[in-house]
């Protein structure tokens, strides 16, 4: 949409110079959208009501949560069958639910971090001592990766705190985390990334991004935002249902006022209650009030007030209304045929 708007603006201005061409050639792909600190998403995201709504929209299906996954390092095991009493069965189900809850924890949504530029001391007398940088890491036991003291002595004698990129690399060298590599893998860049998007391997991309980067990393936000935009444009919502990333996707779409495609999909697949909770989420995050007189009034009001795709949404809603009306009629007919009314 952004690309479309820019193109139309350019056409209005009627000066399609080469500079403009390069701009929208880049924008025809997706551009990065970061959460910034001026409009901090944290208070809304960590709100309990909003977390509950995001969980409802995830539409948890335990069969999908505990499905066989492409992890590569675990061998496939045969399922175990057990005889259980009713109480034991309830206990086991509860345990499974707890495990599912921990598996479905939504990755945190935080603003992108700011670059570090803290100079600790200037010693120009040390020029010529070293031709390379010296990186000093504090490996004291029990310090968090984010709090670890990492300083760099530059060849010109300046002692400064290491940048984020160096910090991450050094932390991974001295305190390796499983699944993370020192260099970010190629799958997050260029044609490899585009190819993954084309093949709709959304969950794989997002899982790998979660392992490789911290959530406040600009690279993480670039990858996730581009993936979310791609999902939104290609209607790939079903690929993320019952995974931990669906909440983050919904929050992203609501935060950037771009929920029309998701709403359309929900109405078309007859999940009116979920559509309602999506509108509720929108009103809570964006602080907009919608009328709540009957089941579908909130959706209608949203379509009138804030939607960009009014035509398609109204049509879908009309179709949904007609279908539910027909359903009621059929049920009534069946009841009368059975002599129950």
């Amino acid at each position: 949409m952004a690309a479309f708007r820019l193109v139309s603006k350019c056409l209005k201005a009627e000066n399609l110079s080469s500079a403009h061409f390069t701009i929208f050639k880049r924008l025809l792909n997706y551009s990065t959208v970061e959460y910034d600190e001026q409009r901090d998403p944290r208070p809304s995201f960590f709100n309990k009501d909003i977390q509950n709504l995001l969980r409802t929209l995830t539409r948890v299906d335990l069969h999908k949560v505990f499905r066989r996954r492409k992890l590569g390092d675990e061998k496939v095991r045969d399922p175990e069958y057990k005889f259980m009493t009713d109480e034991e069965l309830q206990e086991a189900l509860q345990k499974a639910q707890q495990k599912a809850n921990s598996l479905l924890q939504i990755p945190p949504v935080v603003p992108a971090r700011k670059p570090i530029s803290k100079i600790l001391s200037l010693d120009p007398e040390l020029q010529g001592l070293e031709t390379s940088k010296m990186v000093f890491t504090d490996i004291t036991f029990g310090v968090k990766d984010s709090d670890r003291l990492i300083v760099v002595r530059q060849p010109d004698g300046t002692l400064c705190e290491a940048e984020w990129e160096v910090k991450n690399r050094i932390n991974q060298i001295y305190f390796p985390q499983k699944g993370r590599s020192v260099k970010p893998p190629k799958m997050f860049q260029g044609t490899d990334f585009e190819d993954l998007l084309k093949r709709q391997e959304y969950e794989f991309i997002l899982d790998c991004a979660c392992i490789q980067f911290e959530p406040n990393d600009p690279d993480y936000q670039r990858i996730t935002s581009i993936t979310y935009q791609h999902i939104n444009d290609n209607n790939g919502f079903d690929k993320l249902r019952s995974t931990r990333h669906f909440g983050a996707l919904t929050f992203f779409l609501v935060w950037h006022k771009n929920i029309d495609n998701l709403l359309l999909e929900l109405i078309e697949t007859c999940y009116a209650d979920e559509a309602n909770s999506l509108i509720e989420l929108y009103s809570k995050i964006k602080k907009v009030e919608f009328e709540k007189t009957n089941d579908l009034s909130m959706i209608e009001h949203y379509i009138k007030k804030c939607s960009n795709k009014k035509g398609a949404l109204e049509l879908a809603l009309q179709a949904y209304k007609e279908m539910s009306h027909q359903k009621q009629n059929i049920e009534k007919g069946i009841k009368t045929a059975h002599g129950m009314s």
Binding site: E130, T131, S132, K133, M134, V135, F136, T137, D138, I139, T140, F141, V152, V166, R169, I170, I173, Y174
Partner: peptide, 9 residues
């Protein structure tokens, strides 16, 4: 990256 790495406890 032209860095000499040192770790100190």
């Amino acid at each position: 990256h032209n860095e000499k790495l040192t770790s100190l406890n």
